[in-house]
Amino acid sequence: MPQLDLTATSADLTRAVCDIPSVSDDETLLADAIEKAVRASAHLEVLRDGDVIVARTNGGKPQRVVIAGHIDTVPINGNVPTRNIEIDGEPYIWGRGTVDMKSGLAVQLKLAAELSDPRVDITWMWYDHEEVDAARNGLNRLSQSRPDLFAGDFAILGEPSNGAVEGGCNGTMRAVVRTHGVRAHSARAWVGENAIHGAAPVLARLAEYRPREVEVEGLVYREGLNAVRITGGVAGNVIPDLCEVEVNYRFAPNRSVEQAAGHLRTVFEGFEIEITDAAAGARPGLDAPLAQEFLAAVNAVAQPKYGWTDVARFSALGIPAVNYGPGDPLLAHHDEERVPIAQIEAVEKGLRAWLSPS
């Protein structure tokens, strides 16, 4: 079994956890290594649920923080093992998972082992299946089977944020807009009705759509509504009787899932629409005292998170949560995924400064 040395630098630990392949559905080897490494710390109570590892301090502190990160990656494409590179004289670690989100995971593992008496009690959560459908998400599963483990006053998710603090997140919704027609031979098209042609107004509405910019608790979230897939057609000589346009709606956290669905039905009024997937966003929650202390400790001004992350799961449980991790989100899932070592070190320094006793 691979070994993890939690006394190594956070950069070296990043390479170690990245070099244990853990594509979704294949996280067990990394979960085993994490469990073995953190069980060596006497100050941590360690629990395991499937491939979710929970390690927590129980120092009787008046406040508790939950710090979480996922251990899986999207599929490897020739970018493991990792390697050290330089770009314009700046050192980076290159390879799958360096951004999303094993550099953040490495920082968390190192601090979990070293902070034996933090200023607040800490629940560390490392979970599987984040990169696939929500029904298999380890954090989602644990929140339903062991909600008691989520007790806390504030939460941090180590998703890549360029070392900045990103509050809350947009919600996300997928829907299918359908147009119907009548099949006919393409040589006698006038006999039928072309469903693909009928989708032209749907695409026109999308092209003309202007997304909102919405201020929520001092952060401005930008929405988005886009076609992400279009399907239709029967054969090369048949007028199609069905066309489906799949759309993705990213909505500000001041809208509920129900309100977002109502907005889509208004936009596509007159067309058949089916909501196929939805996840609520998360308000920033930056007015929480611990959040303010955290921002001050890491010397950060919060920014909005445009994508959806698991901070929404904490928000749904009434726990204010932010994203804070090394790595450029634009390089997540990229074949040239890479993280600046300086960002890894800065995030470790920021978290250590906030969590260490004064």
Rank of each mutant, 00 (worst) to 15 (best):
E258Q: 11
R255N: 07
G232T: 14
I273G: 10
V267D: 00
F271M: 14
E258M: 07
R250N: 04
D277K: 12
R250K: 10
E258F: 04
F271H: 11
G236A: 11
E215R: 15
V267H: 00
G218N: 04
G232S: 08
Q259A: 13
T231H: 14
T276F: 03
F251S: 07
E272V: 15
V234C: 08
R255C: 11
N254C: 08
G262S: 07
V247P: 03
V216W: 02
E244R: 03
H263N: 10
A227Y: 04
E258A: 15
Y249A: 00
E246I: 04
E274L: 12
G236Y: 09
G218W: 04
E272G: 13
V220Q: 12
E215L: 11
E244N: 11
L264M: 09
V257S: 03
V228P: 07
T266E: 13
L219R: 02
I275W: 05
T266P: 04
N254S: 09
V216C: 05
T231F: 14
A235T: 07
L225N: 00
I239P: 01
G236C: 12
L264Q: 01
G233Y: 06
L264I: 03
G224A: 12
R255Q: 15
G233V: 07
A278Q: 06
E215D: 14
G232D: 13
E217M: 10
R222N: 13
R265V: 00
I273T: 12
E274Q: 15
R222M: 14
A252S: 06
P253M: 12
Q259D: 11
V216M: 06
A261V: 02
N248I: 05
D277Q: 13
G270N: 12
G224T: 13
Y221W: 09
V234W: 11
S256E: 08
E215F: 12
R222V: 10
V234S: 11
L264K: 00
I273E: 08
T231Y: 14
H263V: 04
E269G: 14
T231K: 14
